[in-house]
Nucleic acid binder design. Structure first.
Lengths: 264, 264
DNA sequence: AAGTGGTCTAGACCACTAC
DNA sequence: TAGTGGTCTAGACCACTTC
């Protein structure tokens, strides 16, 4: 008596789902980019380790070439959405853990304890200054005498309490377009991202722990001898040119933060 | 009287340098990879913002196709060695600042103050345990009752002084091949990198500052009420599966560390 | 008008995996 | 043996920059 049950037939063929989409060859939007977004949408209804259709199937399905398919898929692999095993296939990666308050670019990606507090960032002072030796070294400025940097002091609040003290230095005249008005509407990294030549591509960050000094204790309304986490960021452009140096001091007792590190 | 000096002729044509190299089409080493290494070598004798020869010149020079040239160059752009401007060309980026003691993978990438001390990492204890709720959550373990994790306690020394206290948890049985012997010869990330399925692709890191508790004060021989930096790492594979959870406590008074963050 | 990088096609051969 | 991703070729058209 034949009782083999065709379990494989019950499994949904994932490749069918993609037939609800198509690419438009008459827009300026690149084909690989359209196709990439199609995969991203479909990932929402996928499970980790689900197999994607092989490259050739995608080629036929959308009428695009294998290179175009590969460009989209390889970018998604780089971004952690998919993984590939040679001779086996392309598979869905587990979703990333996302922390709510992470903001890798901004330099003030702190997680404020207690969910009911409203974070706010306020510009306290902005002025052009001559860089001291430390700033000049960090920003790789050679002509210290004539060079100027834009100095920005900001406070990070949670409700009315000051949680952090942020001192930034931006290379001038490259970053002169940064104004207080712009900083009040969007984060510094976004303002810098408005120009290709000032877009931040990489950050080097140093972290140290120290005791707060008396003025910081007073400013942040902390207990005497309170902890301060000192975080120094240097932001680099695509040219690997440092244009942004930032020193962040935040209350060690109330603040922690999360970083995502991608390895190659 | 004609006194225009042809300054442009004095500039060395960089493309000539590349003619000292060639690729070998009869090795199993991919052409794009050979070509990439040729560029990397040539970068040593280049200045930031120097222009590279255009893609087509490379094609003719090495007898390889444009896609192969592009694959090499685009990887170098991703790695921060080059930058490209559309319609203008490919240029040398400024060299990255490299800190000596950075070790992104290892989780104990600390910079020990005072250069004359010898760092050492020692395994104190290794055993299989049942994960508690926190560990299970971090490693996305569902079946808490039957699951096991490999618990590893290590101390980081500078000379004879303990600088950090490192507690790691590895998913079992995937990571059972990690032995004390292997940990004594190379860093944990390298041991995990020996298998494709346990290779770490991404790390999520949380940093907090706190006071040392009495046993830590004693262990690390610190002043009472000493600062401890608490650093929690979760390591993910290409599948985005968390397999490595590590809690690092290090002396806030003696240790700082540096992180490199790449943005997309 | 010439040069450059961005996108895209239609093929090809290979090594490795699974059956 | 068939299927898969990895590598590679030889073209093509485009938008944008520079002259």
């Amino acid at each position: 008596m034949l009782i083999i049950i065709m379990i494989r037939c019950i499994r949904r063929d994932k490749s069918l789902n993609y037939q609800n989409y198509q690419v438009n060859k008459n827009t300026p939007v690149p084909l690989y980019y359209q196709f990439k977004n199609i995969i991203l949408k479909e990932l929402n209804s996928s499970q980790p380790d689900d197999a994607l259709p092989p490259e050739e199937v995608f080629c036929n399905m959308f009428g695009i070439s294998r290179s175009t398919v590969r460009q989209a898929i390889l970018e998604l692999v780089n971004e952690g959405y998919l993984y590939r095993i040679k001779s086996k296939g392309t598979f869905v990666a587990r979703p990333k853990i996302k922390s709510d308050l992470i903001d890798l670019y901004s330099g003030y990606n702190i997680e404020i304890q207690g969910l009911n507090m409203t974070p706010a960032l306020k510009v306290i002072n902005m002025e052009f200054i001559s860089p001291d030796r430390n700033i000049a070294q960090k920003l790789q400025i050679e002509n210290t005498e004539t060079a100027r940097v834009l100095s920005i002091l900001r406070y990070q609040y949670a409700d009315t309490q000051i949680m952090a003290h942020i001192q930034s230095y931006l290379k001038s005249p490259l970053c002169d377009f940064v104004t207080e008005e712009k900083l009040n509407t969007c984060p510094l990294y976004q303002v810098l991202g408005q120009n290709d030549s000032t877009k931040i591509k990489r950050i080097e960050r140093t972290i140290e722990t120290c005791y707060a000094n008396p003025s910081e204790v007073k400013l942040m309304n902390m207990d005497k001898g309170g902890l301060v986490n000192l975080c120094a960021n240097i932001g680099f452009t695509a040219k690997n040119e440092p244009i942004w140096y930032e020193i962040l001091k935040y209350r060690g007792d109330k603040v922690k933060y999360t970083i995502e590190i991608n390895l190659d």
